[in-house]
Design a protein around this nucleic acid. Sequence first.
RNA 1: CGGGGAGUAGCGCAGCCUGGUAGCGCAUCUGUUUUGGGAACAGAGGGUCGCAGGUUCAAAUCCUGUCUCCCCGACCA
Length: 426
Amino acid sequence: MKYSNFFIPTFRENPSDAKLKSHILMLKSGMIKQETSGIYSWLPLGFKVLKKIIKIIEDTHDSHGINQILMPTIQSSDIWKMSERYDTYGKEMLRIIDRNNKELLYGPTNEEMITSIGKHFIKSYKNLPRYFYHIQSKFRDEIRPRFGVMRAREFLMKDAYSFDKDEKSGELTYENFFKLYLSIFEKLGLKIIPVRAPSGEIGGSLSHEFHLLLETGESKIFIDETFLNSNFSKLKIPEIKSINSFTDELYDSLKISKCLKQLKSTELGHIFLFGEKYSKSFDFKIDYNNEKIYPYMGSYGIGVSRIPAAIIELSNDNNGIIWPKEVAPFEITLINLTSDNVSTKLFCEQLYASLKKSNYDVLLDDRFERPGIKFSDADLIGIPIQIIVGKNFIDKKEINIKTRKDLNETTICSDNIFKFLKKMKV
RNA sequence: CGGGGAGUAGCGCAGCCUGGUAGCGCAUCUGUUUUGGGAACAGAGGGUCGCAGGUUCAAAUCCUGUCUCCCCGACCA
């Protein structure tokens, strides 16, 4: 992508309305635009990051036989009346009346809808287990939205749903999703802590949240300190059930006596095994041998649009964002400091083409801007590698490679660029 | 929902107390000179001062109402 074609409206001054570092940087780097309280547009740079995250989530789900679908944002009140959540969900649910006076709502979650889909199509235990997921906007009318996309009203969520024939099979599914989540967060470069959680509004018995430790986080979790360095990926259901870490709500209600460390965090994922709750209320029965059973269900959410903000909270400096390579909008930014010079222009165009040919995701800064502006924009938008081409190239065929993380700069001969990138393991 | 703050050019702000033709910095446009860390000079454009009503000869400024946004808390997860 060429900068001249890519819309990145950066700002020199900090936005007055934002307080959290990630919120400030997302606005300042032109990733998002607030439309109204708790509702945001994703601009090209932000959307590119979001798509990288979505791709990791999709690939991981697809490789585990989880079927991607797309359910609508607008739901009928009928299915919510069936589960009796239409009344209990409260003011967080955005209710809509259509022209025929039919009660609709903007979905805050999709258990009801997936249950109705399951009931419509699944008739036999031989079709189970079956897994579905979708990535779709949700709306929860928070009392007080804040911190940009961290706590938005409209947000993007990955929610998966499982149908099993019985509890035992359901727990195996739950265990698989538990591991799936660990691997997704690992691929995102995030060190995540699973904690036991109350199952709350959705109901059921088994529930865990996946938390990222963050000083500026809104959640509190209680964990055994040895957990900070544990590997959870080998855990089986009995161990998962008895993990020694808790959300504050569960910690309070269980009155845990053992001394646990309290830490601040942000919730990025939440999984539930709620069993027959919805299949029962929908009278969703299937044939099993010579009887009828209610499928055993679970749901598994990831707050997709919250992830970019969480990463920025962890990874930034005074100059701007520092993207980890896993989710960086581009791997490399190629900065031509002298856009009007024929030889640097030609070199950059050729290098840009061959980098793309080698499958590097590159942003070529070909703008007619002064060097200072290009440097500060590059640091602000935080692409991991900067290749800087300017006077040194014209004089000595030398270019500079800068790593955004530590701002270290190396001068190399322009012929050696690919060798150097390989050595850097970009 | 309780408490606090704010709405004036695209962004950041001053002006309001003490009413008298709406300003600054950045950004934008034109020109010249510049060009390895947010350039200089010269010129230009851009405003229903959130909205509605009231007081007044006169309202960004005073009064009343209302909408929106932000922060703290409670709530939610």
